[in-house]
Design a protein around this nucleic acid. Structure first.
Length: 428
RNA sequence: GGAGAGGUGUCCGAGUGGUUGAAGGAGCACGCCUGGAAAGCGUGUAUACGCGAAUAGCGUAUCGAGGGUUCGAAUCCCUCCCUCUCCGCCA
């Protein structure tokens, strides 16, 4: 959510910044609502003031044993008017709140212009796409040799799910373990375990609600629970309605969870394979930082995610998302894209964002600034470190050999019982 | 699932209709005292919002959330949420 003061005092500027990302802010409507709000609020508060003063007078008169009936009659009239005005104010405020919950974050000035992912700007590359002296398989064909079973999954659940067996199931667990160890031991993150079902307040806090309900899976009973689409939701909400001590910052948290996404509106996109699933594993990095530190933290967090790919020897590139491709809550985002031989292109495997105070304002996540002594909104960031399913895809595609074997990078071997290769499954 | 207790400020805790934003204590900040520190003493110490040029002033709201009663609600009534204890069930 944007700062309402900033909207009031710099409406044109905010509207221009939002236009950069393709959001049309209805300035006239906002201004009209604001004017009504102001008028109604002043009136309401005046009436409340009057009522309070007279009620006190009644209390005093009563204490002195005087007749209070005439006073009561007066206050009654005020009450009736107050009720009317307060109701109108409530309506206007509701409309304003709805409008503001719908507004995306303002892009940071360093975010490149552009309308779609075609306008994203490549920042750097690491490693080189492998060359094969045979025709490399994509992960679906290759996975079939190693225990990746989409048919079984669709029988049990439906499309966009997968069953992994044997070494491949273990490989996914190994990847997860490796990532958690790297971030906790070398990057200074604290591991957390969190609920996978969350309430609507949490979803509102990070920005999934109210606008993107259709992307979520919801529980059908009266609980009001949603399945988390990313660990970002429960982990960032740890700070909701809290005032953190300056000494507690920065907080670096890492969390492995399954993620559940309805993928509404992605019909026909990545229908084949494990790239786009209703359920996938992810290791997520979250940072809660002082506002002045958040852009340095974004660079740092992105490097932490990149390190995973470097250790796994997987070629990738980093792109800065253009304004038009930014996520709703983000002020600036780097995507990390890994090379997929099966598609002969780079595909997103991590998305690292600085939300500045956008999420913090929604969830009232604050810290006490020692310089002012006051609670102030903190800044939140997160990034995948990494999407485990896609990482598994990248790994098997990049390290496949002519005979269907898959080489394991050295960093992973300790997590796979010292194995150096995955052998195709035979006769099972 | 059954029975009970409870949710007040950074924390503990008082408060059952009338100048209560809220006693008292702890913590924290500043000052005095001290060779220095502790103790002691004194002073201060919520948040959001509105009007406003204002870091001045004034006002409004906030005692889990929402609704109701009343001239007036932290205090009375209703609904919901959460926490704790005991019993049952259960991995």
């Amino acid at each position: 959510m944007l700062d309402s003061r900033r909207l009031r005092s710099n409406l044109a500027e905010v509207a221009a910044a939002l236009a950069r990302r393709g959001y049309r802010l209805d300035s006239e409507r906002f201004q009209a609502l604001e004017e009504r709000r102001k008028k109604l609020q002043v009136e309401t508060q005046q009436l409340q003031n009057e009522r309070n003063a007279r009620s006190k007078a009644i209390g005093q008169a009563k204490a002195r044993g005087e007749d209070i009936e005439p006073l009561r009659a007066q206050v009654g009239e005020i009450g009736a008017r107050l009720e009317q005005v307060a109701r109108e104010l409530e309506e206007v405020q509701q409309e304003l709140a709805t409008m503001m919950l719908d507004m995306p974050n303002v892009p940071h000035e360093s975010v490149p212009d552009g309308a779609s992912e075609d306008d994203n700007v490549e920042i750097r590359r690491w490693g080189a796409p492998p060359s094969f002296d045979f025709k490399p398989l994509d992960h679906v064909e290759l996975g079939a040799l190693h225990g990746m079973d989409f048919e079984a999954a669709s029988k049990i659940a439906g499309s966009r799910f997968v069953v992994l067996r044997g070494a491949l199931a273990r490989l996914q667990r190994a990847l997860t373990q490796f990532m958690l160890d790297l971030h906790t031991r070398e990057h200074g993150y604290e591991e957390v375990y969190v609920p996978y079902l969350v309430n609507a307040d949490s979803m509102r806090g990070t920005g999934q609600l109210p606008k993107f309900e259709e992307d979520l899976f919801a529980i059908r009973d009266e609980s009001g629970y949603y399945l988390i689409p990313t660990a970002e939701v429960p982990v960032t909400n740890l700070a909701r309605d809290r005032i953190l001590d300056a000494a507690e910052l920065p907080q670096r948290l890492v969390c492995h969870t399954p993620c559940f996404r309805s993928e509404a509106g992605s019909y026909g996109k990545d229908v084949r394979g494990m790239i786009r699933q209703h359920q996938f594993e992810k290791v997520e990095l979250v940072q809660l930082v002082r506002p002045q530190d958040s852009y340095a933290a974004l660079e740092e967090l992105t490097r932490h995610a990149e390190t995973v790919l470097q250790r796994l020897e997987l070629p990738y590139r980093v792109v800065a998302l253009c304004a038009g491709d930014l996520g709703f809550s983000s002020a600036k985002t780097y995507d990390i894209e890994v090379w997929l031989p099966g598609q002969q292109r780079y595909r997103e495997i991590s998305s690292c964002s600085n939300f500045e105070d956008f999420q913090a304002r929604r969830m009232q996540a604050r810290w006490r600034n020692p310089e002012t002594g006051k609670p102030e909104l903190l800044h939140t960031l997160n990034g995948s470190g990494l999407a485990v399913g896609r990482c598994l895809v990248a790994l098997i595609e990049n390290f496949q050999e002519a005979d269907g074997r898959i080489r394991l990078p050295a960093a992973l071997q300790p997590y796979m019982g010292g194995q150096t290769h995955l052998e195709p499954r035979r006769g099972r």
